[in-house]
Write a protein that binds this DNA or RNA. Structure first.
Lengths: 186, 186
DNA sequence: ACATTAACTGAACAGACGTTCAGAGCAAGA
DNA sequence: TCTTGCTCTGAACGTCTGTTCAGTTAATGT
């Protein structure tokens, strides 16, 4: 595998486990199987390495969501969104973890960029909730709050879910969709 | 104010803003209004400073919950728990933030201790859900998952809530209790 | 008035940090 | 065969890290 890719993989894994600030470029180099200096052929510095990981993650997430056809019916659209979110996040727990934990280690400009990508993603969910409320098929006291609540609810899964655990991914998905549905049931 | 207390306050504030690993003892000293060496009159080292903050936070949280009289009726008990959780966490956003974010920076033994304190707290919620399910007054597909979902839902509030924001604390509390109730409505 | 104690300063320690760079190694193109 | 262009190593840079400690300061108890 090419060094640039190994570098990113190593960084994602180490950042997720110990945090951006706690991981040194030397550790990343060791995990990549290369000397420190060589890393700088593939990234300009540590900060932009983090930024690229987060920004690319948000791009990928958004692109993947765009591939999902959301039904016109708001409740069905919410189900599609919920299942997509759970599935996508379950497949890359490390990247997700970093994307939510390491925002504060970005420089202000980099933070603003990633933050706006995150808001664009949440806007998709908000739109579904808004339509569900307007159509009277959902009970949503406050669209913004419901959106944040659902995101927090769903994303929390990544902190404890293990494929070898008590419940399979499909079971978790079903139970979480059930809870999400109830949250906004008319 | 006594130095030991100023030290803890400074550490909580700085750890919440930048993360444990990103904050140096010199920064903490500056914020405390003292030279670096003086910190070591009040803590043995950086790691136990973090551990004490987290462990004491969990102790305080548990002690505060113990003061709340939880009604016998599971739904009323859930409401009491929900409102308590939201209120307690809204009052100390920094400490809460650290307690959830800096767990991975604890040594294994310290982590296990804090983790068990956290589980003890969650066990209170689980017990309420179990009783609600057994009594048929709640719909709970999986007690453990519902517990984790509710905790994630409620704790997520601290990441965005600002007293000067669009909604007052009481309004947020009401809306979140409404969503929590719906989540487990029979 | 003196002794004791605790808290603080300021400097020092060894090691780790992010980053740079001269030179080695090697593959591709002329 | 020689040159060009990457990618790598290995060492070095200045700075910052957590922690220690001799010595100053000030308050307390006798």
């Amino acid at each position: 595998m090419e060094t640039g890719q190994r570098l990113r993989r190593a960084a994602v894994s180490l950042f997720a486990r110990h945090g951006y600030a706690a991981v040194s470029m030397r550790q990343i180099a060791a995990e990549t199987g290369v000397q420190v200096g060589a890393l700088y052929n593939h990234t300009t510095d540590k900060q932009s390495l983090l930024f690229d990981l987060l920004s690319d993650h948000m791009d990928d997430l958004m692109a993947a969501l765009d591939q999902v056809v959301l039904p016109a019916d708001p409740v069905l659209a919410l189900e599609a969104f919920t299942r997509f979110h759970l599935r996508y996040h379950a497949e890359r727990p490390d990247a997700v973890f970093i994307a939510y934990m390491e925002l504060r280690n970005l420089t202000p400009e980099n933070f603003m960029q990633v933050e706006s990508q995150r808001r664009a993603y949440e806007a998709r969910l908000e739109e579904i909730l808004r339509r569900g409320k307007a159509g009277g098929v959902m009970h949503v006291a406050d669209v913004k709050l419901a959106c944040l609540a659902i995101i927090a609810l769903l994303t929390g899964v990544t902190t404890w879910f293990r494929p070898a655990g008590r419940l399979s991914q499909a079971e978790v998905e079903d139970i979480y969709w059930d809870m999400t549905r109830r949250l906004v049931d008319a």
